[in-house]
Design a protein around this nucleic acid. Sequence first.
DNA 1: GCGACATATCGACGATCGTCAATGTAATTG
DNA 2: CAATTACATTGACGATCGTCGATATGTCGC
Lengths: 120, 120
Amino acid sequence: MLCLMTLLPVLPSAAGACCSPVTGGVLEDEQAEALARTFKALGDPNRVKLLSIIAAADDQEACVCDLTEPVGLTQPTVSHHMKLLVDAGLVAREQRGRWAYFSIVPGALDALAGALTSRP
Amino acid sequence: MLCLMTLLPVLPSAAGACCSPVTGGVLEDEQAEALARTFKALGDPNRVKLLSIIAAADDQEACVCDLTEPVGLTQPTVSHHMKLLVDAGLVAREQRGRWAYFSIVPGALDALAGALTSRP
DNA sequence: GCGACATATCGACGATCGTCAATGTAATTG
DNA sequence: CAATTACATTGACGATCGTCGATATGTCGC
């Protein structure tokens, strides 16, 4: 699902508009917006780096205190970026005691990759 | 290459810095910036839609005049978005007579997908 | 309850983005 | 050459973004 290459009944206007181009167009817009939202979350080098640091951690998770120093950003800024990644559905946040542990949502990146690859 | 999950010799500071953390860190930054640049190009719903329209075209290419109406944007705005997609290496531009034909760079999306998927 | 700590939120700042109207450029047709 | 067509570039505008310092929230140990 959400495959860029095979997804689209686009350009219904050139085909005679037999099947409610309005509805089709709206659905299309929602999918495009959903994809763009996720990509936008990855559109910052520090967020990509944060994601990679979590992925490279031995226990596959990290707290903010582990993340600030590698990216060279302030704690509020890292918190902000992590919130964006969480809101995008790419990262999960789990509070354990005083610390908030962030981990990559299983399958999230693969699902996004699936939206990019053609399906032969 | 450029795989998010297996890419990273991150956090060399915690490991004792045996292998030039400066060089490794700089390389890391460049890769993160390169990935973020590409993702940023996909971070707008209209650009995602433009890409999908091109991919869905029967001849796998489209000119600006074919793109303006489906996305509901002005011609200069579409030209602007197409330039961003071309600069990101996702779309190729070929001038044929008066028209500029845009097509998806073969393998570009799959390469990006490869940067997202883990490689077991 | 009271500090100490980890994180989130707020407010503000310059910077970048998306969009358009107007104009410029290049190629084709008459 | 002049007019037309397809597209790119410019300049401007509000909107969003990334970043920070300051502050608030929440959690633990005493």
